[in-house]
């Protein structure tokens, strides 16, 4: 097991290194620079600013400086937000992104699994059709359409909830969390339903029933663990995707999280901030992928004994 985890961590580290290197050079190759939009400054001032951010050095030295910074957990100053370091910006934005992401994952997992189970246990019932409809709607309607629609309905017309921002405590969380959870509720409920139907047909389930074990015990003890394996496999990457996917949510609901910082930073060529957030997002994604593999290996001996 330890070897398994070690190998995954090593591969994850390689992937992260590749991602960060690629991002670094892609950002430098993209047209424009962090200070090319300020038209009214003299060339001397421009040169001084660029020297202050080490932008006048050859690109490999800048890269070396960046790697050295990462090793000391110092991501450098932001070129756009004066007086703020990238560490400050991430520290101020991350709590909002994580809060929204966390609740979206919890709600998506609970509602999705419940809908999927209800559909699988009572196939072709009203519940099954309801779950199917939620699934189709959640997958087909993009969150940047359903988000504004919910804003228009519950915030502007009915005035129950704030349109956006973060100043109303839990009330300002409701809409972003629901919108972010919706597509995942759809996927999870579909996945649970298919997998549950398949597992109920397995021989070991029939054997357990034939041995005289009660229906409820078979359902909870024998069937559910097997049926939820694909759901768990989906949840790991989905959690990471939900946290990174908050870029759209944060734009729609004006949440000052790191997703919004990323888009702004990429458009304004704020190199250090882009690098910092890429590193963070990549790390989150890779860690969740590894965690998923480990949990699956614990639950499923077939995967554990593969190599």
């Amino acid at each position: 097991m330890l070897r398994f985890i070690g190998k995954r961590l090593w591969h994850g580290g390689l992937t992260l290194a590749a991602l960060v290197t690629l991002t670094f050079f892609v950002m430098r190759l993209a047209p424009g620079g962090p200070f090319s939009r300020n038209r009214k400054i003299s060339p001397e001032v421009q040169a001084n600013i660029e020297a202050a951010f080490h932008l006048d050095e050859p690109i490999w030295r800048q890269f070396g400086r960046f790697v050295w910074g990462v090793l000391r957990l110092d991501l450098g100053p932001s070129t756009r937000h004066r007086d703020y370091s990238v560490n400050d910006l991430i520290a101020s934005g991350l709590p909002y992104s994580l809060t929204i992401g966390f609740w979206a994952v919890v709600i998506a997992a609970m509602v999705g699994v419940a809908l999927g189970l209800a559909g699988a246990l009572r196939r072709n019932s009203a519940t099954d059709y309801l779950a199917g409809t939620v699934g189709v709607v959640g997958i087909a309607i993009p969150i940047f359409v359903i988000g504004p629609l919910l804003q228009a309905t519950f915030a502007l017309r009915l005035n129950w909830l704030p349109v956006g921002g973060i100043n109303d405590g839990w009330r300002s969380l409701v809409l972003p969390v629901i919108v972010l959870a919706l597509p995942n509720i759809a996927y999870i409920s579909r996945l649970t339903r298919t997998s549950m139907i398949e597992t109920l047909r397995e021989n070991y389930v029939r054997t357990a029933r034939a041995k005289g074990i009660g229906w409820h015990r078979v359902l909870w003890r024998h069937t559910l663990t097997g049926a939820l394996l694909p759901v768990i496999a989906y949840l790991g990457p989905a959690t990471a995707a939900i946290i990174t996917g908050s870029i759209l949510i944060e734009t729609i609901f004006a949440v000052p999280g790191i997703g919004r910082h990323f888009v702004d930073a990429a458009l304004n060529r704020d190199y250090p901030l882009v690098m910092g957030i890429t590193l963070l997002y990549g790390g989150i994604l890779i860690l969740f992928n590894i965690a998923t593999d480990v949990i699956r290996a614990i639950l499923d001996p077939r995967i554990r004994n593969e190599r």
């Binding site: 994850g12 390689l14 992937t15 992260l16 590749a18 991602l19 690629l22 991002t23 990471a240 995707a241 990174t244 996917g245 870029i247 990323f262 957030i277 890429t278 997002y281 990549g282 994604l285 890779i286 992928n289």
Partner: peptide, 9 residues
């Protein structure tokens, strides 16, 4: 490796 990259980024 490419799969490990965050799609949006």
């Amino acid at each position: 490796i490419l799969y490990g990259f965050p799609y949006v980024i």
